[in-house]
Design a protein around this nucleic acid. Structure first.
Lengths: 229, 229
DNA sequence: TCCCGAGTGTCACAAAAGTGTCATGGGGCG
DNA sequence: CGCCCCATGACACTTTTGTGACACTCGGGA
């Protein structure tokens, strides 16, 4: 749901600051203290964007860049470099290292988030955009509205979050546990079958007016937003 | 189907935590309280990866490492060491004990799973990859879909797991016992012939639309996913 | 304060989908 | 030519999912 950023930065103070501010801006943030750790975390879960310090212990920023560009899963992952003033700046400016953008320390947090959003919009618009679309379904976050083929669909808050989540990765199957975590929050104690009920309600609302059911049930696995069949 | 991890750790609290979290991450986990028990369990069933505490009663972590490296079945089994801060760290860091990686306690669960996945990807990519292909058959774990020559193939949960398993080692022949273990789980009491029935159902589903039977029956031995002779 | 309506979480029961066994009939292989 | 060994349809049984009903909570308004 939230964009997932990985901050690879060895300077503890800066990392904490970034962590705090980016979290406040609505990003999910994880942190790595050096290039090696960063690469590992990336392997676990591909971030939506990487904030990368230029100078790093163990594996340098340039090297991390190179490796990310070499892997198919991360070839298109945006990389934003953090550089100190004067630090190899010519090379960085050209961005021929594979990074997509850079900021020079010290920088204003607002400038950073602006650049982050710009990069994200380019690669994964569904993460920052106010509106998600799938087939004839449109979900508008700003106005909290859902339309299907132009017709307004009324959803309760839970159904709205559920659809929002499903629309971020259409086709992918999510277990009830996963949906519970994503939609209800990770520390909620609710009957798992409650997910079924809400999926049912969402389905009913989306089918209003005779449209096809856009949710696929995968027996013994979960649900996905998907073309049937 | 699920990667099988063995946790060798004497600290009850940590072991339970690991058990719980790794299970949630989709691994099958077994636990041993000391090195001796660990070696026994490994002999019973070779794990896909071993999580090994450095300090252990009876047989130490280092010794377990050594013994695993000495046996052909486990020579290539990845070992991830768990060490307390400062504990023999130089020696561990060099990984000259035979371990493939290590984490220092206390550690974030996300870091641990990242490293586990990284190691598994290195040795057994088919265990963690999202998509398997063989000939014109594509199995996508994320969307839980199987396609043959672009046509969607509907499979029940058991047939899906069965195909998943067969696709991990195409061409190789598996006995009914082996398939039973892998697909039904090691503690299931079901008639062996049931495998035949499910193979039959899988075949039927895959032949849908006139395609050739991709499963080879090896008389008095088992089945394999294979081009027919 | 009290009432009301939208939203939620549970349950129970029905329906759908998937499973395990068995019996029967072929077929391959010595 | 016989044996095994396998393929397969039938079927009773389980498991999993869909859904309507219902009781509760929580903010507004009146």
């Amino acid at each position: 749901m939230k964009p997932y950023l990985l901050v690879i930065e060895d300077e503890e103070a800066l990392a904490t600051l970034l962590d705090y501010n980016l979290d406040k801006e609505g990003f999910r943030v994880d942190r790595a203290g050096d290039g090696e750790e960063g690469l590992l975390k990336i392997e676990e879960e591909t971030p939506d964007l990487v904030l990368l310090d230029w100078m790093l212990p163990k594996v340098s920023g340039v090297e991390v860049c190179r490796q990310l560009r070499a892997r198919p899963e991360t070839r298109r992952t945006p990389i934003l470099m953090l550089t100190a003033r004067g630090e190899e700046s010519d090379k960085v400016r050209g961005l021929d290292t594979g990074a997509d953008d850079y900021v020079v320390k010290p920088f204003a947090m607002s400038e950073l988030t602006a650049r982050i959003r710009a990069l994200l919009r380019r690669t994964r618009p569904e993460l920052v955009d106010e509106r998600l679309e799938y087939g004839d379904i449109v979900l508008d976050r700003a106005s909290r509205r859902v339309m299907r083929s132009g017709r307004n669909v009324h959803l309760g808050p839970t159904e709205f979050r559920l659809l929002d989540f499903l629309m971020q990765r259409p086709g992918r199957v999510f277990s009830r546990e996963r949906l519970m975590d994503a939609v209800w929050g990770p520390n909620t104690y609710v009957e798992l079958r409650t997910v079924d009920v809400h999926v049912g309600r969402l389905r009913k609302a989306l089918r209003e007016g005779g449209a096809a059911d856009p949710i696929r049930t995968v027996r013994s696995a979960g649900y996905s937003l998907d073309h049937q069949a």
